[in-house]
Design a protein around this nucleic acid. Structure first.
Lengths: 347, 347
DNA sequence: TTGTAGGCGTTATCAC
DNA sequence: GTGATAACGCCTACAA
């Protein structure tokens, strides 16, 4: 490895001078500058960030902890982080907890997770990262999992109740509210809901949004229209069948994720209902496969890339001590082919 | 930040002694060890990896360059990297080139890419990474893109002709060969192929595998059964329609990726052919959505996680100078619902 | 305008 | 058994 010392010798100056010209501070004559730069190019010198970090007590590096990279939200969030990190000249050390492999789809047990997170954070702090971004597997309160460390942390796709830490989340309730509004605006009055696990924060918020819209439009609320699934395809399939095999069939179904929505589409097909002619279906999450269903699924897109992008801004704010505004991000409705005006409304 | 010096003072020993007990080398009395450890716990000391790296001239860190994290292959490869990196005690610095955003789906222009890669590699080398893993967007020769640097590099999901660098790839030809064999074993004799871009290395290899199988089984080779698409859903749809609206309709279609396979399924449905009863369809890549199609798509699974896992092994071999065995990884056939025995064979 | 020297937190050599 | 002390590569007062 070529060092400043070697540059200095070859250019007949001191290391200090080399440092000055490299960092473009200090008062150095054009003459010397030129000579130093020539040697730098010639020897293909690359500054040693490790040494610099040690001296400066700053690494310009952010530790990113992902609960699981293979989960659908992670890549886009990471992409957003990268995009903005580059603008700030920050590097990313990525640690993947592989949580889904470790605990499966079960609710994450704080007692098991905490030591894991603690170990990873200690490691990151040892590496002198300037801050940490923590990307959750699903939206939930992770306060109980996070050890008490003295370093800026920003949570993405999950949140904490610690006031001095920031959380970047999106507005589940608003999204479900708008999805329901959209259905109503198309003329639907009998709208069923296929929910995810009832103990899930998201499911709860999305339900609230649905309910809010129904009430605001003074539509009848049928408890029988609320079905609770488990987020998976099969539950969407069986619950939709349920809905379609009883009296008072709904004209539209709002599913709380795309898997269940696609399952619902299959149920309709199997039972001889056409989507969307006979029944409209709307999903949630805008997963990649929602574009490949027949009909293509109308759904809600989550602001994942934006969340990643903002998390870098937030961590910078935390590091530099400037105050930070909160606020939830909003989702976007993606209109495709699985929703239309109900039959009864048609001319 | 608490340092060894502070530990030393509080424990009434020298820094050297602290170092000895922390690293468990040197001959230190149990007495002193105990005293030092107590202070370490008490002050919650964390070693400074930056200082250590500087001294040891080794960071135990691998730079991972991903051409695009949001592309389907990346998360699983990264997951494999993480899994094995943890076992070796290695950290990962992740850099995302975001290539797809920058150059789109066009063939990557070496003249544009090279400076980009050069910049990223210089940055990584400045950070003193012990080696670099480069994850490609799609399988291709990236030799022209890679600057000449003196650090171990392993390529994943792409390859180079440089002898001193390793590439981790899977066997496209074998996979297509086996997919075709599978169709033939089910009794199919008229098997059409929906190919990707003809200038793609993968498309070429997969075609070879298909051809090899047809020939080995002494089946007739109809050039009219070979259709060239562009990897997207729509091309699968229109090309399958082509195939089904002319004479001598095939009994099975091998599509070179899942998007086109799903497009082909839709074409069959629209034309009144049942999948798989009238026509069998097999895809490639085992994308997430292949599980949500109706019928569920039979396809080829790529060993992505394994490739990531092995890349860490390979980079370690390169770093430690031990020789390394090459060899392509094999894919796995995922049997689902889109293939069955052709009608003519049924009782 | 340039050079000297101290120090960032470690490890390791040598002396005691 | 333990302690000084010199690096590792860089930055930056301060001196010249």
């Amino acid at each position: 490895m070529v060092t400043m010392k070697e540059i200095a010798e070859k250019a007949n100056v001191s290391v200090a001078t080399v440092s000055y010209v490299l960092n473009e501070n200090g008062n150095i004559s054009e003459e010397t500058k030129k000579r130093v730069w020539e040697v730098v190019k010639e020897l293909n010198y690359r500054p040693n960030h490790i040494a610099k970090s040690l001296k400066m007590q700053k690494t310009n590096t952010i530790g990113v902890i992902v609960e699981d990279v293979t989960v659908f939200n992670a890549p886009k969030i990471i992409d957003g982080i990268n995009e903005n990190a580059e603008k700030f000249g920050l590097s990313i050390i990525l640690t993947n907890m592989r949580l889904e492999k470790l605990v499966g789809n079960h609710p994450t047990d704080p007692e098991k997770c905490r030591p894991l997170v603690k170990k990873i954070m200690d490691e990151l702090i040892s590496k002198q990262v300037d801050g940490i971004i923590y990307i959750g597997l699903h939206p939930r309160d992770v306060t109980a999992i996070i050890p008490d460390v003295d370093i800026p942390i920003v949570f993405v796709y999950c949140y904490t109740t610690n006031a001095h830490q920031h959380s970047i989340i999106y507005d589940d309730q608003l999204a479900a509210y708008e999805a329901t509004n959209y259905l109503i605006s198309k003329g639907h009055e009998r709208i069923a809901l296929i929910s995810g696990h009832i103990d899930s924060k998201s499911a709860h918020s999305r339900y609230s949004g649905y309910y809010q819209s129904i009430k605001e439009h003074q539509l009848a609320f049928y408890p029988g229209y609320i079905k609770t699934g488990d987020w998976y395809f099969d539950s969407g399939y069986t619950l939709a069948k349920d809905l379609l095999q009883h009296d008072n069939i709904p004209t539209a179904i709002l599913a709380m994720n795309d898997q269940m929505a696609v399952g619902a589409i299959k149920a309709c097909n199997d039972l001889g209902f056409k989507v969307p002619a006979d029944i409209s279906i709307i999903g949630f999450d805008n997963r990649e496969f929602s574009e490949y269903s027949s009909p293509k699924l109308t759904t809600i897109s989550l602001p994942l890339q934006e969340m990643g992008f903002l998390s870098i801004q937030a961590i910078q704010d935390l590091i530099s001590g400037s105050s930070k505004t909160g606020g939830k991000l909003t989702c976007e409705l993606i209109e495709r082919e699985s929703v239309c005006t109900p039959k009864s409304m048609k001319i």
